Amino acid sequence: MAREKVIGSNSNPDDSNKHDAALRPKLLKEVIGQRKVAERLEIAVRASKKLNEPLGHILFDGPPGLGKTTFATVLPNELGTSIQLTSGPALSKPADLLPFLTNLDEGSVLFIDEIHRMPRIVEEFIYPAMEDFRIDIVLGEGMSARTISMNLKRFTLIGATTRSGMLSGPMRDRFKMHEHLEFYSVEELATIVRVNAAKLNTPITPEAAHELARRSRGTPRVANSRLHWTRNYSAAEHDGPITEPIARAALDMAEVDRDGLDKNDRKYLETLIDLYAGGPTGVEALAATINLASDTLADEIEPYLLREQYITRSPRGRVAMPRAYIALGKLASKPKTEDKQGGSLFD
């Protein structure tokens, strides 16, 4: 049997927290995938430096794990400035935003994750900060109330959202750039796995990296999770590099099938097919049956199932597609579901 080429080298593992921090790219040139987005950001960064202006406000949207936070943390490194991080749910009132805005340095970055979950009152409070770099603070109540306008240092707001449609029109319009992140190819994910395995001082063969990438749902965060699990499995059960058979055995034990579906994906599809006859049914009904939050289904499970055509969305709800029946071995029992025009979805 031919020997497989091994990438990486053997050494003692470092602290796991240092490993996690080391996996995140530091510069745009280190980002793998999303090249069109990275190229546009590189132009924006060069223009910002040349014009001596803060980078325009940026909104990143797309499913979880595709690199929104990575881009947000890379940009301050490119600009040579600082970053403050918070999230929409943590900003329940305008006062929660004040410490971040008043402590900003000139040209620094304020990153708000899950920005679509920011309350409308906070959203309206940040409008003048985004447009004119000032905030209006109301002191007192009733007839004695007065408004003080406070100037801020010029900054860049970066927002990340999995649901850009939930942002109000005025909020979306205040972002100079709106970048949508797409799922990654298997080749891009295999490169990410190889690079991160080297950072973790974990030898891995190209074939094993490809196997991990193929089962990672087009998502770097999932690929890194698969890599960490396979690394642990290999260290406990085997000596030497991670090979393709080891990668397959590790992922099979983790209940991740050859198509990248995990137990929650299969539970979703089984519920839709077995309990709801393949649909159509609403996401709230599915969430209640599976005992998972509807946001979890909509943001983490469904994007991949929709992209890979396991399910589709109709005006009446989710419908299982032929590939879902094949994946679960239920092809012979699939119903003759009809679409709006009366034709079978499976004909």
Rank of each mutant, 00 (worst) to 15 (best):
N10L: 14
S11T: 08
S16C: 02
N17Q: 11
K18A: 12
H19M: 13
H19P: 00
H19G: 07
L27V: 09
L27D: 10
K29H: 06
E30A: 12
V31E: 02
G33E: 04
Q34K: 06
R35A: 11
V37H: 01
E39D: 15
I43P: 00
I43Q: 11
V45Q: 03
R46K: 15
L55Q: 11
G56F: 00
H57M: 03
P64N: 08
P64G: 09
G65F: 05
L66C: 05
G67H: 10
N77Q: 13
G80N: 11
S87Q: 13
G88T: 09
A90Q: 13
L91S: 09
L97W: 08
L97R: 07
L97I: 04
F100T: 01
L101A: 06
L101G: 03
N103F: 00
E106W: 07
G107Y: 02
G107W: 06
V109Y: 03
F111P: 09
I112T: 07
D113Y: 05
M118Q: 03
I126Y: 07
A129M: 10
A129F: 03
M130H: 03
D132Y: 11
F133Q: 12
I137C: 10
L139M: 13
G140K: 05
G140Y: 01
R146K: 15
R146L: 08
T147M: 14
T147W: 01
F155V: 03
G165D: 13
G169E: 14
K176C: 01
M177Y: 15
E182N: 14
F183Y: 15
Y184D: 08
E187T: 13
T191A: 14
I192H: 02
I192F: 05
V193R: 08
A197M: 08
A198W: 00
N201L: 12
E211P: 01
R214Y: 02
R217H: 07
G218I: 07
R221N: 06
V222H: 02
L227G: 10
W229P: 00
R231Y: 01
H238R: 15
D239K: 14
E244T: 12
R248I: 14
A249Q: 14
A249W: 01
A249N: 11
A249E: 15
A254C: 01
V256P: 04
D257T: 05
D257N: 15
D259S: 11
G260W: 07
D262I: 02
D265Y: 12
K267H: 09
L272N: 03
I273D: 07
L275M: 12
A277P: 00
G278Q: 02
G279T: 05
T281P: 01
V283H: 00
V283T: 15
E284Q: 14
A285C: 01
A288K: 13
A288C: 00
L292S: 03
D295W: 04
D295K: 09
T296L: 03
E302C: 01
L306W: 04
E308Y: 06
Y310F: 15
T312Q: 13
T312H: 01
T312V: 02
P315M: 10
V319N: 04
A320L: 05
M321F: 02
M321L: 15
R323T: 01
A324G: 09
Y325I: 04
Y325V: 05
A327T: 10
L328H: 10
L328C: 08
G329T: 05
A332D: 14
D339K: 12
S344C: 13
